[in-house]
Computed example of a mutant assay.
Amino acid sequence: MKTDFKTIVISDVHLGTKGSKAKEIARFLKQYRCKNLILNGDIIDGWQLKKSGSWKRKHTRFFNRILKMIENHSTNVFYLRGNHDDFLEQILPLQIGKLRIQTDMIYESFGKKYFITHGDVFDSVTTNLRWIAYVGDIGYTFLLWLNRVVNHYRRKSGLPYFSLSQYIKGKVKSAVSYVDQYESELAKMARVKGCDGIICGHIHQAENRIIDGIEYMNSGDWVETMSALAEDHEGNWQLIYYNEIDFKSIQIEAQTSLGFFEEERPVIPLRKVSFESFKEDDNPPSYRL
């Protein structure tokens, strides 16, 4: 089982909400090393925090894990704005050491170019009819609450986790049609940008497939799916699902592989922090990593 990747992409953690799997993603990131970590939007749920959400210690631990990745493994971290963390617009773009916060980016690797964006910019509902988006968010929050109730009784009965919300979305024709249209439109955007593929999030639907010659990849979410995209050191991409990870095998491999996972040092304050602002441009910054 691979545990060392060139790049890992996660999105839609929605920290600040009851549905956020903050403990699980912190555990996930603890098992893996990567040169680049891309946080592709909706990491913090500003919408819910303004209403009824709350910030807990486990949400802070997620960012502590990110800091340890930077400090112990020199991981480059890119935080791309989503629609639920749109409050970041006030500070974009910003670079603090190895952490960059920006709108989107073009990622170049092994001769291929990928346009990476959260995906909400292509959603006319969230961009043009914001009040409808908020109403939809309320409905989705209720669905997640119902999902927790159902799985509480399933656990008591010894049954495995079942995503009620994903099941319902898969049965609603309009939702299925929306996902298909969303994926096709993003693939077209990648072609317009002169890219070989596109990496997004937003719709909480993990995917890795070819659409009209364009690599379409969606990292899923950490509310229901608990998934991430990972690129190995040969340029191959795969989806990793938390529920399919054999954590015991990873720990054994880490212990037996000499120098593979050194004992992590505590995070210490950086002595020197550099602030940079990117020049305004119509095209997102491109990174060859």
Rank of each mutant, 00 (worst) to 15 (best):
242 Y>A: 07
151 N>P: 14
200 C>H: 03
146 L>M: 07
4 D>L: 10
229 L>S: 13
37 L>N: 07
228 A>H: 02
118 H>G: 05
190 A>W: 01
186 L>K: 02
225 T>Y: 02
269 P>C: 08
27 R>I: 11
169 K>V: 14
255 Q>L: 11
43 I>L: 06
176 V>A: 14
13 V>G: 11
106 I>R: 07
80 L>C: 07
246 D>N: 14
170 G>I: 07
77 V>E: 05
124 S>W: 03
189 M>I: 09
273 V>K: 03
204 H>Y: 08
131 W>K: 00
91 I>L: 10
216 Y>S: 11
152 H>R: 05
90 Q>I: 09
182 Y>E: 11
247 F>E: 09
21 K>S: 15
179 V>P: 05
40 N>M: 01
211 I>A: 06
173 K>Q: 10
117 T>V: 10
165 S>W: 00
19 G>M: 01
179 V>R: 03
12 D>S: 15
5 F>W: 04
116 I>P: 00
276 E>H: 14
181 Q>M: 06
23 K>T: 15
28 F>L: 10
280 E>D: 09
283 N>S: 10
30 K>R: 10
107 Y>S: 08
230 A>Y: 05
183 E>Q: 11
268 I>R: 01
282 D>Q: 04
110 F>Y: 10
23 K>Y: 15
262 E>P: 00
168 I>S: 11
13 V>Q: 11
7 T>W: 01
63 F>N: 06
254 A>S: 10
221 D>M: 05
131 W>G: 05
7 T>S: 12
2 K>Q: 15
159 L>M: 09
27 R>N: 06
184 S>G: 05
217 M>F: 02
65 R>T: 10
186 L>E: 08
69 M>K: 08
189 M>Y: 12
190 A>F: 01
289 L>N: 12
188 K>Y: 09
155 R>Q: 14
149 V>M: 10
72 N>G: 06
159 L>A: 12
285 P>A: 10
152 H>F: 14
39 L>K: 00
181 Q>P: 00
30 K>D: 15
37 L>K: 01
27 R>W: 03
67 L>C: 12
257 S>E: 04
202 H>T: 09
267 V>T: 09
141 T>W: 00
203 I>D: 13
153 Y>G: 07
246 D>V: 02
80 L>F: 13
12 D>Y: 03
130 R>L: 11
215 E>G: 06
74 S>Q: 04
282 D>F: 03
53 G>A: 04
119 G>H: 02
48 Q>G: 08
